[in-house]
Design a protein around this nucleic acid. Structure first.
Length: 482
RNA sequence: UACUUCGUAGCUCAUUUGGUAGAGCAAUAGAUUAUUAUUCUAUGGGUAGCAGGUUCAAUUCCUGCCGAGAUCACCA
């Protein structure tokens, strides 16, 4: 049996005249003669020229859209315009027929919503195969970035016992049957009898455990699944998503911002360098889509142009207090265009963030030093600044055009007394998080870190409008299909 | 979470004062065959998301439910 050659290898070799075997799926069958064969190894297809006069009728009939075939033949220079070489097939074998009458996909434009319902087939399309190749590239680049800089990849738990993380609604993990859970004397569910001997949930963040790693190994990062049981039906939320959380000893908020900016730029550069064909396709796809849109709704730059721009220019860095001042001086504010109020102490709403990123600075913006009252207990308290109405914490958000908050992070409160005070004020149990406090009691150190939403980064790099289309099997409220 | 729009053939859509539905592509059959979404001819295909209501009559109007999109809240 002839060894199979991957199409990526074929396209990259100088092998005219060689006889090879390729295996893959039919992307197009033109003129009963030309098969565009695709095997996933490369964005591009290999043209297989079928000798239809000497190929059995039965075989010819089964060369349908997305049928799987093996083709053996000689590589020759192509006579057609779209490619330099092609395979003159001497033998075609049907490995898996694809009855077009019953098959869900068709060789034409299908909507993202439709394809989402066909998640077992959608990765076969140009768009999704490009997205998932790039997603892989980004995941690899994450590990490469940190490994090259001496970070250690730490696996933090998926099942957590502490309910003090406070990052929103959590999914409960239990082996109890619904309605059959044992009760304590006062009628509460008795989690002491549950599998772990306590109430447990799926993680919403590996940060607290990440701090343990940072204060032992110096520099760590996590990269794993994260779960939020929020009823969020938007194009940038998932119930199950992947997050990268570096945590670094001796870093302050400014080191943290430098790391975040370097990291983002590295990921973008990596994809620009290694996935030009996939990016070019996605770029064209967006341009085609926007042709029919009014000018003001189109993106100011093409996809690749945007990526280059972000990778080559410094992010804007401002404080929350400056952001509020800027917003108050903005046209939309003066014209009463903002739906939500702009006032020191109020949350920045996405309409405000979008103004800063897309209108004012026209590039990624890092906002830092947020009011303490709305932020998590572990963020480091800043000194009272002159001219600033209230206390702030050393928190930072990295805001990207189109997707909003890509990164959220902070310098952590390393001062035991300050931390304890904050925990009490925010009703976080010191007893439950005794270990977190002991990190400050014994060999504590200043440290900082952040969380980057992996799918949001994939969204930004691929230009996909909906986050459900950059993860293979999206989990959202009401949907856990596949 | 709130508001809003939408759900018609396998897919993308049309069907404007309420009178049981059309096109393009796809499919099937045939012809053609050095193409890059091949070309030509013919054919089949719909309980209009689901459940109620108003009406002589509902794809069209009303209510509820389900799903989706856009905006938005929480956040990554």
């Amino acid at each position: 049996m002839q060894r199979r050659t991957e199409i990526r290898e074929v396209l990259g070799m100088e092998a005219l005249g060689q006889t090879i075997t390729v295996k893959g799926w039919v992307r197009a069958f033109r003129s009963n003669r030309f098969v565009a064969l695709y095997d996933g190894s490369d964005f591009n297809t290999l043209q297989v020229v079928v000798d239809f006069e000497n190929t059995p009728e039965e075989t010819l009939k089964q060369i349908d859209f997305h049928a799987c075939i093996a083709a053996t033949g000689r590589l020759v220079e192509s006579q057609g315009a779209g490619q330099t070489m092609e395979l003159l097939a001497e033998n075609i074998e049907i490995l898996g027929a694809a009855n077009p009458e019953a098959y869900s996909l068709q060789p034409k434009r299908m909507t993202m919503e439709y394809l989402r319902e066909k998640a077992h087939f959608r990765m076969r399309t140009n768009t999704f195969s490009a997205v998932f190749r790039i997603r892989h590239g980004l995941a690899y680049a994450v590990h490469k970035f940190y490994n090259d800089r001496g970070y250690y990849y730490l696996h933090t738990p998926i099942v957590t016992g502490s309910d003090a993380e406070g990052a929103g609604e959590m999914f409960r993990v239990t082996t109890f049957e619904p309605n059959k859970a044992p009760l304590t004397e006062d009628g509460q569910v008795d989690f002491k009898q549950d599998f772990f001997g306590k109430a447990t949930n799926l993680t919403v963040s590996g940060q607290l455990q990440g701090e343990i790693g940072a204060l032992a190994l110096g520099k760590i990062y996590t990269f794993g699944p994260t779960f939020r049981a929020e009823n969020s039906n938007t194009s940038r939320h998932l119930a199950e998503f992947w997050m990268i959380e570096p945590e670094v000893a001796f870093y302050d908020i400014h080191d943290n911002m430098d790391l975040a900016e370097d990291f983002c730029k590295y990921l973008i550069d990596y994809v620009l360098l290694h996935y030009p064909d996939d990016l070019a396709f996605l770029d064209k796809r967006i341009a085609d889509m926007e042709k029919n849109m009014p000018k003001e709704k189109r993106r100011p730059m093409g996809l690749i142009e945007t990526l280059r721009f972000v990778a080559e220019n410094d992010f804007e860095r401002i404080t929350y207090t400056e952001a509020v001042r800027t917003l108050k001086n903005s046209k939309p504010y003066k014209k009463g265009k903002f739906e939500y109020p702009v006032e020191w102490g109020e949350e920045l709403q996405s309409e405000h963030e979008r103004y800063l990123v897309e209108k004012k600075y026209k590039k990624p913006v890092i906002v830092r030093d947020y009011p303490a009252k709305a932020k998590a207990f572990y963020m480091r308290m800043n000194d009272q600044e002159e001219g600033v109405p209230g206390r702030t914490v050393a928190a930072m958000d990295v805001l990207f055009p189109g997707i909003g908050e890509l990164i959220g992070g902070s310098q952590r409160e390393e001062r035991l007394e300050v931390l304890q005070e904050r925990m009490d004020a925010m009703h976080v149990s010191q007893e439950e998080l005794y270990w977190y406090l002991e990190l400050r009691k014994f060999g504590g150190a200043p440290h900082a870190g952040f969380g980057l939403g992996f799918e949001r980064m994939v969204q930004f790099v691929t230009g996909m409008g909906n986050i459900r289309d950059v993860i293979a099997f999206p989990r959202t409220p009401g949907n856990a299909e596949f």
